[in-house]
Amino acid sequence: MRVLGIETSCDETAASVVAEEGVLSDVVHTQTVHAEWGGVVPELAARAHLEKLGPTVQAALAEAGIARPEAVAATAGPGLIGAVLVGLSFAKALAAGWDVPFIGVNHLEAHMLAPLLETPAPTFPFLALVVSGGHTALYRCEGLGRYEVLGQTVDDAAGEAYDKVARMLGLGWPGGPVVDALAASGDPTAVRLPRPLPNQGHGAYDLSFSGLKTAVRQALAREPRPSDADVCASFQAAAVDCLIDRLERAAKDTGIRRVAVTGGVAANSELRARLAAGRLEAFIPPRKRCTDNAAMVANVGRRYLLAGRRDAFDLAARPSWSPA
């Protein structure tokens, strides 16, 4: 079954065709309009989605070499509601016009199962850490649609912390790639930063990045001020330590050693290197499948469709939708 996937939940306008033989096309248009505002502006995102979605879908179909898919899947949430609505409305209309099944997909579930598109793919059960600018959560995945939230951030998402540190340093937006790049030339031990521990009034696998962000601000106020590279390296080391710590604790407690790490922050070089060198069996998609894309949406939609599920055209957007 060749499934067209559509993703518009934040600032990527994406379309992809996924079939039995794999990903036939994977088109992503990243909106650049937000950089001057220092973050994603929801109204601008929605405007850009409406402008780019048609050409993006046409490109995905052309690249896949098909005129029409056998089903359409689209992100129905969670995400920026105005942004989700563009892709969801467009997708339902496409499916109605083509007279093919439609299914709404949970964006976080799409990230969680993105490693299933790769070779080797993890087998169930596995742990999934979804870590991005909008979400940071650790899930236990027992099978399609069978997930448990083990822990999540109690304040900022990890990617949000990267963005805020970048803003403090005047490095622009998005902060993840630039902090990651600067960290490569810094000393990760130069600035002492906290590693907030679990079990301090929260769940055993919960995370917190707010205190770390504040510690960075305080470090920048000290004299002599540490170099930007040292700040980035020290912050990155602390953030990645926290993520790895929760993963390792959860793996130990559950006995599940297969871990999928996805979401925009999974493109981070330090996190990837630490996972590659660590004791867990890590499954990290290539960078372009860590950030928002539509192949992951088509992947999940296709799995549900093959299992016999489809959604009616009265499906509404779900801006807050837990996959568990």
């Binding site: 105005g82 609505l85 209309a93």
Partner: peptide
């Protein structure tokens, strides 16, 4: 209404493209 306009337009555009 910005969001309303987009929902209608995305629906119309999706039908126009698929048909």
């Amino acid at each position: 209404a910005f969001t309303g306009v987009r929902v209608g337009m995305a629906t119309a555009a999706g039908l126009a493209m698929s048909l």
